[in-house]
Design a protein around this nucleic acid. Structure first.
Lengths: 146, 146
DNA sequence: GACATATAGTTGTTTATGCAACTAAACAAA
DNA sequence: TTTGTTTAGTTGCATAAACAACTATATGTC
């Protein structure tokens, strides 16, 4: 690959990721309009718990690509909102298993509907083929750097 | 476009933008290794000042896709680091013109070299054609939501 | 000129990230 | 069993983002 493939202006937009910031802001706004008072960061944790309830904090770190302090504090805030609860693991007393409350479980359907709507807004006019390639590139970038 | 084009797992990674986060972290790390003690957010402001010195804070907001309080505080921190200075505009006394200090100017060459190296690390194995399509998709997402 | 409105920037609050230093439990080896 | 190491999670600190409320200057209209 050539060293000169990027003009400076292109470099900037690729690094700063303004598209994902824009999606995040729109999703947040759409949650708010639906009277769902959670942040997109909290959503990204709940998202994984809706798939597999009772994950440990370390598993949430791996799933969400966050470090341990970030997850500690996101779980703190989700607990304050009564959406999850920390249960000490009986097999390994170092572990907290994070379980959804009934209210936390109920949020899934509405949140996922809004997330799908948001994504369709974001991807208007983009073809499936283009999306596939964009996803591949982003995955390769991630793999190159992790 | 179909409403069902995204399986949930794909939706998540597209929204959360882990690739741009990974590039940002790597750039930060590469700055640190080169003993350049600025954050990537500070870099993204300097980047525009290197192109056009003396921009107003509002112009920096538009260029970096940040709101006004964010720019106020980034400029505060850049001033603390003696990399820029706020100069009151003589034509319009509401405006601060942000000008680079000599030290701020000197940083450009080393920073841009590191940014280019980081981007080449990130894009190993990705073809120019794929990059073009990824950039188009990200631009369309941004335009759809702004 | 006086008043309403728009623009530029600041401050306060809450939430989140990155890093380093820390505690506690589990495990492994002697 | 004692010692050392790894793993899980927490806490402190600095930086940053989003949002709302605010001040001050500029501008448009009557």
């Amino acid at each position: 690959m050539s060293n000169n493939q990027f003009k400076k202006g292109e470099l900037y937009s690729f690094i700063t990721g303004k598209a994902s910031t824009a999606i995040g802001r729109r999703l947040q706004k759409n949650f708010k309009q639906a009277n769902i008072e959670i942040t997109i960061e909290q959503w990204s944790v709940l998202y994984h718990l809706w798939k597999v309830d009772g994950m440990s904090q370390q598993q949430l770190c791996d799933a969400t690509f966050r470090d341990k302090p970030s997850i500690t504090r996101l779980v703190d805030n989700l607990e304050k909102l009564k959406l999850v609860k920390r249960n000490a693991s009986k097999e390994d007393r170092r572990k907290n298993l994070i379980v959804l409350s009934p209210v936390g479980k109920e949020l899934e359907e509405r949140c996922m509907e809004i997330a799908n709507i948001t994504l369709n807004e974001a991807l208007q006019g983009v073809t499936n083929g283009q999306i596939e390639i964009a996803k591949e590139v982003l995955q390769m970038v991630y793999d190159n750097l992790k």
